[in-house]
Simulated scan of single mutants.
Amino acid sequence: MYEEILKYKYLRPIPIENKEYYYKLIYEISDAFTSRLIGGDLFHSANINLLIDELGQLLANSIELYEWGYFDNAYYSLRSANELATIMLDLSDKTDWAIKKNMELFLTKRYRKKRYQIINWLSEEGIVFKEVIDKMPNFKEEINELLDEINQVIHMSGRENLYSFRRELDDDFHETKFKQFENHFLTTIKILAIFRLIIDPFPLLLKEEEVYYRCPDLVTSTFSEDLLNLIGEKTIEEFKQTKSYISVKNTILSFEKRNEYVNNLIIANYIDLNHLDEIYSQKHLINKTKLKFLDIVSCTDKIIEIKTHNGIEWCMTSSNTNDYPCLILDDKDLINIKEFFNIPYKDIYRSILNLEEYNHFANPSNLIYIFHEKPLDNGEIDKINNVLMQWGKNGN
């Protein structure tokens, strides 16, 4: 009884109608991973990506908590997201050596910098943030103003931020308070999006076609029009004037431009079987694994998907007209395999190619799985075997 009384005594749940829009923005932030090479490896960018993903969870928490009526906890999550994003910026907007050192401190709980110290230091010493502040003079003030307003709510400053006061007020009051929260939430999204661009500008750069058709395959996604509109056209144009944006863009523009079909293969993992000649015309731009995929799917138009055993590299073909569950076999299942081609699976078939010794599966990392709607005939199997033999002769 006491639990029910205390838990719900002053709570005022607020249904949030626009929730899907907010979640879409959150997803874009948490999905905008960086492929930036730090100190010669991807280990440190993986840790930065961990923080990017964590930001998405904190933002999602704030929406759920506000809707349940825990408004101060919702603001705690917003503040946590802003503070973590500031730490992420401090970890990334430095030389490679400093990034590695700060990352080690953070991961071992020895990182002791406060948010305002980080912002002030980066304003003076940051590689990219300093120039962003110069190009966008109101940005730093916007960051500090947001955190001041969030802290007023968290510290229960003012009667309207007390649960006991808010509970009895009418819908107009609560609608006004939610609009304030919405403004703080969207401002947080804007700030976090800019922080993400400071790490590397690809979520914005990839919106430019000439960059998109030259850029290497990256793990990041482009920002949508909704997110770009939230950042604001003026802010985006100011950011495009930074040295970071311009230098990365010029580097990418120096690369060879891919044709549409090669671009689909590299960026979208899609092989158009009707345009194989155009794809092969730029095979020097395609990595070794996808070239193998290309050689295999050239043997038949029945293949709908092809992937490595670990699933990291994969491609779908233009023959895939249905959403089939193209699953690989478990390692333990490979022991009992007698036939390597035309293994039935639900409504389709799987075939397994071993890039080393074709008669056993001692090393699963050498396997390629192909999926096809119809069984492969002997002529198609012979073509695939010939490709495997040719790879063996060439040492591939």
Rank of each mutant, 00 (worst) to 15 (best):
F202E: 09
A193G: 08
M316C: 13
V128N: 09
F71V: 02
F165H: 05
K140R: 15
Y66R: 01
L186Y: 02
Y270M: 09
V132F: 06
L265H: 09
N336C: 13
E256L: 05
G69V: 06
N342V: 07
K283L: 06
Q117A: 13
R166E: 04
L285I: 11
R112K: 15
A46P: 00
K346I: 02
N320F: 00
F181E: 05
K9S: 09
T317R: 02
N354A: 11
N396P: 00
K346S: 04
D53I: 01
N359M: 13
N385A: 09
D72P: 02
V297E: 05
V128P: 02
S224K: 00
W391R: 14
K177P: 03
L37P: 08
I348F: 15
C215I: 15
A193S: 15
T251F: 13
V297K: 10
S247H: 10
T220K: 00
P137T: 07
F178G: 10
T222W: 00
F33T: 01
Y21L: 07
V248W: 06
E260H: 14
K374S: 10
L58G: 00
E3N: 12
I118W: 06
N161V: 00
V211W: 12
I119L: 15
R110D: 14
T251A: 13
L329Y: 15
I279T: 06
I252F: 12
L37K: 11
N47M: 10
S221H: 06
R214E: 03
T188E: 02
R12V: 09
E237I: 02
T187L: 05
Y2P: 08
L186M: 07
N366H: 14
L84S: 04
D96Y: 07
T235K: 10
F255P: 02
M88G: 13
V128L: 06
N342L: 12
H360G: 04
A98N: 14
K24N: 05
N269S: 10
F340I: 10
N183A: 12
H184G: 00
N183L: 05
T86F: 01
T188L: 03
A32C: 11
S92Q: 06
P15M: 12
S298R: 11
V153G: 08
N18K: 10
D148I: 02
F361S: 07
G379H: 12
E131Q: 11
I348M: 14
K234W: 04
T242K: 03
Q390M: 13
S77Y: 01
